[in-house]
Simulated scan of single mutants.
Amino acid sequence: MSGEGRRTGGRFPRCVLFDLDGTLLDSAPDMAATVNRMRAARGVAPMPLAQLRPHVSKGARAMSAAAFPGLGGEVPAELIREFLDVYAEELGRHGAAFDGIEAMLSALEADGARWGIVTNKPEYLARGLMPALGWESRSGVLIGGDTLAERKPHPLPLLHAADAMGFAVADCVYVGDDERDIVAARAAGMRSLVALWGYRLEHDDPRAWQADTMVESPQALLDPDAWP
């Protein structure tokens, strides 16, 4: 165990766990390329990136439903499989880390903190992104949506990640852009931070999620005092 307890002033949290899509990674361009290949195969015009972007953190089913509104929200399993197959081919080709993420991760590392990833993205897809981002040896843990028996908003992935990295829950902060992230953190007894730069639907109200804090940009997290 880390044995350091909660952080002291001027230091970053000892362990930070991050959501991936919409938090560390601006993957919306990859997702748009995916749904537009699917739409083109059906003779449907491309979907603007800005129209798809708010749905990205909700997962493959939500993005498929947004791309094909005629389904009325009823997305068949074969369409989800098609989405994942096409997305695997577009993986990492168009998206990139959000501006300021690399500087923030480097600041954590320079302070001796460790970080990892807990995402609902299938683990094989998340791992496929790591080499191009240079994160495969830097991320202390990577938990995907299918790694364990439960996924967010269940607390198990966060609890498992903290334990795998050798930290008590009190040493950790979870950062995410979706309500499920904050619900999972609260259920785990872990401090939470809303990444306001991420993906949200128009009716989403992050203030109602009851996170410990909300931050507008990765650059703001270069200040240790911005962290809960």
Rank of each mutant, 00 (worst) to 15 (best):
T8Q: 12
R180Q: 03
L79S: 07
I143V: 12
A187V: 14
S106V: 15
G3F: 02
A45W: 06
G92Q: 04
R61A: 10
R186M: 11
S106K: 12
I143P: 05
L79P: 01
T119V: 03
F98C: 07
A77P: 01
R53W: 01
L71Q: 02
F12N: 05
P218W: 04
A97K: 10
L125Y: 03
L25H: 14
D85V: 11
P122Y: 00
L84M: 12
N36H: 05
Y124N: 14
E109W: 13
A161Q: 08
V44H: 13
P155T: 14
F83Y: 09
V169L: 06
H55G: 07
H203Q: 13
A60G: 02
R11W: 14
R114Y: 03
P155G: 12
P76V: 05
E4T: 11
A103D: 13
G10Q: 12
R14P: 01
M165H: 03
P224L: 07
L201M: 12
G145T: 00
R114V: 13
A170I: 10
G43Q: 03
D19Y: 02
G43L: 03
A187E: 08
P122K: 00
G112H: 12
G3V: 05
R7H: 10
M104Y: 10
N120V: 02
L25N: 02
D223G: 09
D99Y: 10
T34D: 07
A33L: 07
A170N: 04
T8G: 06
D111A: 09
L84N: 04
D225F: 15
G22M: 06
E74L: 15
E150T: 11
P155W: 02
R138V: 10
L133S: 01
E74G: 13
P155Y: 05
G5F: 12
A96P: 04
G198V: 06
A187F: 08
I101E: 02
G3E: 14
W115Q: 10
A32Y: 08
W209D: 06
A126W: 10
G95A: 00
A40P: 06
N120K: 06
K152P: 01
L133N: 03
D111P: 03
M130Q: 01
V141T: 14
D204W: 01
E202P: 08
A28Q: 04
A211W: 00
P224M: 12
V75C: 15
R81W: 10
V35L: 15
F98K: 06
L201T: 13
K58Y: 11
A188D: 04
A45V: 09
G22W: 04
G43T: 14
L158V: 14
F18H: 04
C172P: 06
A107Q: 03
G134D: 11
A226C: 08
L142D: 02
L52Q: 02
V56F: 08
S192L: 11
K58Q: 08
G73K: 11
I182F: 04
A126L: 01
D99K: 13
N120M: 00
V86L: 09
V44I: 15
T8A: 08
